[in-house]
Every structure is written in C-alpha cells, then in structure tokens.
C-alpha cells in the first residue's frame, strides 16, 4: 500500500475510524523512517477517543495531538493549536482521525485550505455495512456527500471496515465485499484497504487484497 503525507479518516460515527486511524499510524511508523503523528479531530464523541491508545502510540514513538480535555469530564469541543503543526509541517507524516458524520467533519473545515493547497493527502471514507444507517451503498453514498459538504475535502478512497464487533466472523467480512465493491462503483472511488481484527487476519489473508489487521481499543467490560 502506498501512502501520502497526510491520511484522513472520516465516516459515519461508530464505523471504526478511531481504531483504524491508530492501527494505520502504527503501520505507517513501521513502513516509513519519517516521523508520524496522529491528530484527534473528533469534537463529537467524548467517550471513545484516540487518547485511549496513548500508551501504545507513545511506545511506538508516535506523537498524539489531542484536546487537553479529551477523556476528561470537560465536554468542550476544543482543538489544540498543535494541529496546525501537523497540517503545516511537511517533514512528517500525519494521520487525522475526524469525528463522525457531517457534524464531526465540520471541525476539519478550518484546516481544509492548507490540506488542499499542499495536495499530498488521502481522504478515506470508513464504511461498515453492518451499521444501521449505512446498510446499503446508497445510504453510504448519502453519508459521503454530507461529510464532503461539511469538511470541504472530496474523498479519494474507501476503507471497508464491515464488522459486527467481537462477534464478527470471516464470513461476515467476505459477505461485505460485494457491498464495498458496489459502494466503490457508485462513488467512483477505489477500495484502499479492508480492515479486520487480528483474530480474523490469518483466516482472510490472501483472500482479500490490501488487508490491514488491527487491535480493538478495549474500554468497557464484557
């Protein structure tokens, strides 16, 4: 898989953006000898945050840029000034984790002119056909249009993250491929990768192109 200087993950809330962004940043760090930073641009969801993976990211040498209020009781949609550093400094790779839906993508708008000007980015739409409001390619297209309108950056590719949480089977992932292909056809966008839990990776390796394994951020008790 090739990568650009900046990789932006957006999509319907609960589609898995934060998990993927963290896993992708870790993958990038392995692939490249450049510095990597990850930016938590989510001003919508105060419960699941990139900051939950702070320890893992720090150990891997990845800088996390997040609101000082993330994971606190201050439900304040604040963005730290360091984000300008991630957007404007072109000597390091940046992964941007954008908040869910069009409301989440609004926060991106502040940085859109700089990102478009540099023109070295990938804007990825994370999709999951097992989420109730993106069950079909048509519904997914609707979410795509709303996010593009709010954030001002057109998508460049799709990430198929169709899953049913820890009950996902390899068959569930395989069954989602037609949905991903049809969404790609409708939107005219390529599928950059399919993301699966580590547990399923050995079962699906070689059966799906560009498969990225990832670990789930565990926060609550089963």
């Amino acid at each position: 898989m090739k990568h650009k200087r900046m990789t932006l993950f957006a999509g319907h809330y609960g589609s898995g953006k934060t998990n993927i962004a963290v896993s992708y940043a870790l993958w990038l760090k392995e692939q490249s000898d450049q510095d990597v930073c990850i930016v938590d641009l989510d001003i919508v969801n105060p419960y699941f945050r990139t900051k939950d993976s702070l320890k893992e990211l720090t150990e891997a040498g990845i800088e996390l840029i997040a609101s000082p209020y993330a994971n606190s009781n201050v439900d304040l949609p604040a963005l730290p000034q360091e984000i300008y550093g991630a957007v404007n400094r072109r000597d390091r790779l940046a992964v941007l984790d954008i908040g869910g839906d069009d409301r989440g993508a609004l926060a991106l708008g502040r940085y859109t002119p700089a990102i478009l000007e540099e023109n070295d980015y990938e804007m990825l739409l994370v999709i999951n056909c097992y989420r109730p409001l993106t069950r079909t390619p048509r519904e997914t297209l609707e979410v795509l249009r709303e996010i593009e309108a709010a954030g001002g950056i057109p998508f460049t590719a799709l990430v198929n993250n169709s899953n049913l949480g820890d009950q996902t089977t390899a068959e569930d992932v395989l069954a989602s491929l037609d949905y991903a292909k049809e969404t790609a056809r409708l939107t005219g966008l390529p599928i950059k990768m399919t993301t699966v839990h580590n547990r399923l990776y050995p079962l699906l390796q070689g059966r799906i192109e560009d498969l990225l394994p990832m670990e789930l951020q565990a926060k609550y008790y089963a």
């Binding site: 609960g14 989420r131 109730p132 899953n163």
Partner: peptide
C-alpha cells in the same frame, strides 16, 4: 432489519 446489525445502545433504543 431482520439480521444482525452493529449498534450503539443509544441507537438500538431509538430504532426500537
């Protein structure tokens, strides 16, 4: 929506 979907508790409540 007869088959399984992945939902947040809040969404499941709203859909129900």
């Amino acid at each position: 929506m007869a088959e399984k979907v992945l939902m947040k508790g809040n969404e499941a409540l709203a859909e129900a």
